[in-house]
């Protein structure tokens, strides 16, 4: 029961390897000032810990007013998307050792949504765009008594887009969305894709019409920021392309 990686992991865990890092955090609290500022925090932390652990260290030991959202701490609830060293990531899924801790680690709120306090942004416009694509199964006719049948291939067809945790990392990394918040944004399209390509759903046409809008899929300029940002590894750009293609061919 031993492998090289495992031995290394177990040996390293025995001793503490704390290093010094600087968290450079974008602070904003309109109760105090209208200006956002940068604040540096010096921490001693094990580089195998998460950025979220670092933020907790600040909040719990140094400055209780530092404000951010979080819940699950393992990349499943979508609460803590933020810009870490200029890239959108989940703080709980980013290990300090992987983001060059020799230099100050910059942490900012995600872009394109109004900042309310520190790393907390207004998520309402994001969820509104999601709700606008009718993100629920629509079927016609009588309900079967048992489950609807679906082949394993048909199920596989939309598997990728079922993984979305609505963290907004994609939408808030999109330059089109930064320029114009009216654009539905990648996350809403991902969630429309999840139903358009579900063989059980019968409202694909309607959803495609919604996305055919001037603020819909055609605004996408295929910059791939969204795909790079997605912590669930969803091929976001590909999903958007598939929706575009379905709009042209009306086949899905």
């Amino acid at each position: 029961m031993s492998t090289a990686t495992l031995d290394k992991l177990e040996a390293e865990a025995q001793t503490s390897h704390n290093i010094k890092v600087t968290f450079r955090v974008r602070r904003f609290n309109p109760e105090i000032s209208d200006e956002a500022t940068w604040q540096d925090f010096e921490l001693e932390i094990d580089p195998k810990e998460r950025v979220l652990d670092g933020l907790h260290k600040i909040k719990w030991d140094l400055d209780g007013s530092l404000t951010f959202r979080r819940s699950c701490a393992h990349g499943i609830c979508g609460s803590d998307a933020m810009r870490i060293n200029g890239k959108n990531r989940l703080a709980c899924k980013t290990l300090i050792k992987d983001i060059n801790p020799a230099k100050p680690i910059t942490i900012e709120p995600i872009k394109g949504l109004t900042v309310l306090k520190d790393l907390v942004v207004d998520m309402e416009p994001f969820f509104q765009a999601y709700r606008d694509v009718m993100p629920f199964l629509i079927t016609k006719g009588n309900e079967p008594t048992r489950e609807r049948r679906q082949s394993a291939e048909d199920r596989e067809r939309f598997d990728d887009t079922t993984k979305c945790i609505l963290c907004a990392a994609c939408t808030s990394s999109c330059p089109v969305f930064w320029n114009d918040g009216q654009y539905f944004g990648p996350a809403a399209i991902v969630n429309a894709h999840r139903f358009i390509f579900d063989s059980r759903d019968e409202a694909g046409e309607q959803r495609l019409e919604i996305l055919n809008d001037k603020d819909g899929v055609w605004r996408c300029r295929t910059t791939f920021n969204c795909t790079d940002a997605c912590p669930r590894g969803i091929e976001v750009t590909k999903a958007i392309q598939e929706v575009k293609r379905a709009l042209i061919t009306r086949r899905f």
């Binding site: 629920f136 309900e143 048992r146 489950e147 679906q150 082949s151 394993a152 199920r155 598997d159 079922t162």
Partner: peptide
């Protein structure tokens, strides 16, 4: 309870004959 969720759209894994 499971069948209701399926009808609401839950994407369960499927058997070769398409059931849950």
């Amino acid at each position: 309870a499971v069948l209701d969720l399926e009808k609401m759209g839950l994407p369960f894994n499927r058997t070769p004959d398409g059931t849950i």
